[in-house]
Nucleic acid binder design. Structure first.
Lengths: 213, 213
DNA sequence: GTCTATAGGCTGATAGAC
DNA sequence: GTCTATCAGCCTATAGAC
């Protein structure tokens, strides 16, 4: 079925999972290599440093995510068919589908991004890999809300990312808040409510410039 | 003017600021004590461990925040005057006001909570200090939206917290996304858009059970 | 209450055999 | 490409003088 993963891949998978769970600094290289079933020295053979390993983990999945987001946006962007709902779908659905249908890697990737994006220490890394795509979405929001000041659109985008990443972080908080009734792991179900929340939130924030209809 | 802070307070202030900036694991005790202008051994004199210091930092401000939130909620909770906007104001405004009008401590507190709430490693700590209040707000949302399933309300609450904390984390991302035009530090301005985003988002998510009018 | 000194272990990274 | 062995430094936490 799935072909055996080579050593470099196993190291990245292991780092992705452990960084997602505990954060970059809480994870020793030794633990990454133990989970990858490889000896300590091999990290330095494949990656320049622990930080370079983190960057490799981020870089590995960025192209497939960003191009899927971009492709879906470009179906309607710039046309009169565009809408806040469609923009939100194009932004959220690719990540959501990968986290739910693919292997655990994408799930860990989402949780890891949630850590990094909340920290000024790593925000430059997030900026470098994510913000070319961010700017496409912000530009399309601006286009369909031409009378809204730019800073409102940027704040609306940041609220969007915050809500999304907090849902994606899968901490167990929802279970705690619901006496065990809501399952944080059920990203598909959460994703539906998340998209409603974000679409409504953006509409409210960008309401002044909303087009007729 | 402000009386000189005693050593224990200086240690907590220093830890709060450094944890907020880089995260718990990235900050050595030595650096905390250097910033507090105290010697290494004093950390163990005042606190049982580094983790206990973190908990003391969280605990220090929780009562004033939670009671302010609760007091504002109880002005209208349970009455026909209640509304999603008022609930959002009671939840967001106390934190917002403290982050903008008091000293830097509250600002660092908000950024620190943003780190911790995103991590399954610390979520039990967040639960222990925040979720008595969370449950009051969730209960009032449920009350005024009686036909909405409980899990939708919990997910709406988590989206709310995610958007709020991402704005409060002050990473510099908004500046990066706006060619320097939007200032992440301007929490007062961000807070206004944040509240609009959240109120609209909750209304959209909890729409099925919204009361007449 | 505050200090210095240090224990004991773990860290990231590298050297060099195979 | 993978291994073992090890370095030099840093970590949290504590002991004991003042």
């Amino acid at each position: 079925m799935t072909e055996p993963r080579d050593t470099k891949t196993r190291i990245m998978d292991s780092a992705e999972a452990l960084f997602a769970e505990a954060g970059f600094d809480a994870v020793p290289i030794r633990e990454i290599m133990r989970r990858a079933d490889a000896r300590l020295g091999l990290m330095s053979y494949y990656f320049e440093s622990k930080e370079a390993l983190l960057e490799a983990v981020i870089a590995r999945r960025i192209d497939v995510l960003s191009s899927e987001r971009k492709n879906r946006l470009l179906v309607f962007a710039g046309t009169s068919e565009s809408s806040i709902e469609k923009i939100v779908d194009a932004f959220i659905d690719p990540f959501l589908e990968m986290m739910t249908t693919k292997n655990d890697g994408w799930r860990n990737y989402g949780r890891l991004i949630a850590h990094l994006a909340q920290s000024s220490r790593w925000i430059e890394l997030i900026h470098r890999y994510f913000d070319a795509t961010s700017e496409l979405f912000i530009a399309e929001l601006k286009r369909i809300c031409p009378n809204v000041p730019d800073d409102k659109v940027v704040r609306g985008y940041v609220c969007t990312v915050g809500a999304m990443l907090h849902i994606f972080s899968i901490t167990g908080r929802m279970r705690m808040l619901s006496d065990g009734k809501v399952d944080d792991e059920d990203i598909a179900k959460s994703g539906a409510d998340l998209k409603t929340f974000i679409s409504s939130g953006l509409k409210g924030t960008l309401t002044e410039g909303e087009r007729r209809g």
